[in-house]
């Protein structure tokens, strides 16, 4: 498992997720489902940064709640605002 989950594969996955985000914009995909997919992509990439780049895995629960909480709260708030505007 660890052989596949390392800093190099995480970098590669984040690059691919970024390209997929760009492609969705380039091909003009829009709507609530696409918006949710794009925000979920951001949450996944953000979680990689918090866990594996910032190396916050295993630090006190308070700091993990602060960092992951920030990421989720912002993305959920954006999603709600977009859904309201449809």
């Amino acid at each position: 498992m660890k052989a596949y989950y390392n800093i190099h594969t995480i970098w590669l996955v984040m690059m691919l997720l970024t390209i997929s985000t760009y492609a969705m914009g380039k091909f003009g995909y829009d709507g609530i489902v696409i918006m949710l997919i794009l925000l979920l992509t951001s949450v996944i990439k953000g979680s990689f940064i918090i866990r594996d780049f910032m190396e916050l895995n295993g630090v006190s629960l308070l700091w993990r709640v602060i960092m992951y909480g920030w990421l989720w709260i912002i993305c959920v708030a954006i999603a709600i605002a977009y859904i309201v505007s449809v």
Partner: peptide, 9 residues
């Protein structure tokens, strides 16, 4: 977050 928010979504 900024990139998809401002450029894509």
């Amino acid at each position: 977050i900024l990139f998809p928010l401002v450029y894509i979504i």
